[in-house]
């Protein structure tokens, strides 16, 4: 039953991705058209220069005819000769099948101008950074949240709740700047940015170097993030504690510790995971440009680069891939939820 649910959820995610890509194609149609036309123009110009260099065997007329034909051919190839809906449709198909076109300036590490290559080489780096943060956030947050719930209304609970509110509207990138200023320049403990030293060391040193470079960005995000997780955990756990089965467990004389960590935490796990990961998903995609502050070469930095160099194809490709990842994250969450909460599997209707 769970597999049926899982498959349905995954298919739904793909449909959602297609729909959103279609909406993007519609919104950004005119700018995408413009970029593509200028790219075709460039291709034709480049080819005709090569053609002329080969020698002047053919006449000027032939050359012009060839040029016009070539232009028409490429225009047809990229579906630019079609009406509006057709262009949007074909562009969506291209994006969904991950043919994201060529960049105008930005190149990948190997020098490729294929947008898909440029974006995909950055995905693991972003996942590494934000994945580490998520795990640390949940561990710290759930731990603190349980402690808060245990003595709700107490001094610890109140002060940490105020902590949650203090960091509520603080931009992660600003705190990152402060930390860089302090921990990288005033008190040079950590590197000010990037993922590796140059040149990167070999072997085990490579991993240690990577961890060393990750400390400051991870620290900043965790410092901002785990308060929220703790607050959510606290509220969910307190809600669960009002349930009858907790009271009956207590009545049976089960120790408070076991009631809290055995019964309450087990029952609260699905919503805790969902809410905290959901809020973290939102926070991370809201903090994605944060990477730029630490020169972490992920997808967030790519937004900075493509905005600064006005590289529209990379910008759009990056947006599609980010959206894809986000939708995948949401689907993954539902799958975890279904796994943790047996009620979801049976009916399929939440």
């Amino acid at each position: 039953m769970y597999w049926k649910y899982a498959i349905r959820r995954v298919i739904y995610a793909f449909i959602m991705f297609a729909v959103i890509v279609f909406i993007f194609s519609a919104i950004f149609n005119s700018v995408a058209d413009r970029v593509m036309r200028s790219q075709i123009q460039e291709t034709v110009n480049g080819e005709s220069r090569a053609w002329l260099r080969q020698g002047q065997q053919r006449s000027q007329d032939q050359f012009l005819v060839w040029k016009v034909q070539r232009q028409a051919e490429l225009t047809r190839m990229y579906h630019l000769d079609e009406p509006l809906m057709g262009r949007i449709f074909w562009r969506s198909i291209d994006t969904v099948t991950f043919r994201l076109g060529q960049s105008t300036i930005i190149r990948s590490a190997e020098g490729s101008q294929d947008v898909m290559t440029i974006v995909t080489e950055r995905i693991p780096r972003t996942l590494l950074l934000f994945g580490t943060v998520t795990v640390l956030d949940i561990i710290l947050g759930v731990w603190l949240g349980m402690r808060k719930a245990r003595k709700a209304g107490g001094l610890m609970d109140k002060t940490t709740s105020v902590g949650t509110m203090i960091v509520y509207g603080m931009p992660a990138w600003w705190l990152g700047m402060l930390f860089i200023m302090f921990f990288a320049f005033t008190m040079p403990l950590f590197p000010s940015g990037a993922m590796h030293s140059t040149p990167p060391p070999e072997g085990i040193g490579y991993v240690l170097d990577l961890v060393y470079h990750m400390v400051l960005p991870v620290l900043t995000l965790v410092f901002l993030g785990f308060w929220g997780t703790a607050y959510i955990t606290r509220n969910i756990v307190l809600g669960t504690m009002q349930e009858d089965f907790i009271m009956s467990a207590r009545a049976r004389g089960i120790s408070e510790r076991r009631v809290l960590f055995g019964h309450t935490l087990r029952a609260s796990a699905p919503p805790i995971v969902t809410f905290s990961v959901l809020s973290l998903l939102g926070a991370f995609f809201g903090a994605i440009i944060y990477e730029g502050i630490f020169s972490w070469p992920g997808m967030g930095s790519l937004y900075w680069q493509s905005v600064q160099q006005n590289d529209i194809p990379v910008l759009m490709g990056n947006l599609s891939m980010t959206t894809g990842l986000y939708i995948a994250g949401l689907a993954f969450l539902d799958l975890i939820y279904g796994f943790l909460d047996p009620r979801v599997k049976v009916g399929g209707k939440a």
Binding site: M16, F17, I20, G282, F285, G286, A287, I288, I289, Y303, N318, L319, T322, T323, Y326, I327, L330
Partner: peptide, 8 residues
């Protein structure tokens, strides 16, 4: 809900 806010 499925559109990441800041990127868009």
């Amino acid at each position: 809900v499925s559109i990441p806010l800041l990127p868009i």
